[in-house]
Amino acid sequence: MSSREDWWYDEAAGPLVRPYAMVRGRTRPVTRELHLVTQVRAARQTQTADLTSLNVEHRELLEVCRKPLSVAEVAAYLDVPLIVVKVLLSDLIERGDVIVQDVSRISEIPDRDLLQAVLDGVRGI
């Protein structure tokens, strides 16, 4: 795989054209449930054959998502703006290559049991 700099960064194109070019000028609306902390992960063992139909950006994203991560972490590790990661993730979710946290659990304010678990967890670090 080429190094990140080869394809994520284009000196001449600058910060605007670069993300636009990265998603091939597509303007699809991103999947609505992708918030900053929404958890995503690669869905399954993806065969090399399946990967050939993906571009390098999608493939690196799948590589990063072998363990569950938030949308924000994926963006930080790939060093691209959030919107770009959301577009790429939307493609992969549609293909079934990435699974996403249950939408219904995202916008909710954490309930008592969840808060208690977080409290115990933070006390323990």
């Binding site: 910060p15 636009y20 998603v23 000028g25 597509r26 938030s70 930080a76 919107i83 977080v118």
Partner: peptide, 28 residues
């Protein structure tokens, strides 16, 4: 949405964040 932003001026806002893995089921 990236629709129509090509050729327009954009700027970025940076967010710093950290992570605490509470358990295999919960991340803060």
């Amino acid at each position: 949405d990236l629709a129509g932003i090509e050729g327009k001026e954009t700027t970025t806002v940076a967010l710093d964040f950290g992570r605490i893995t509470i358990s295999p089921q919960i991340v803060l």
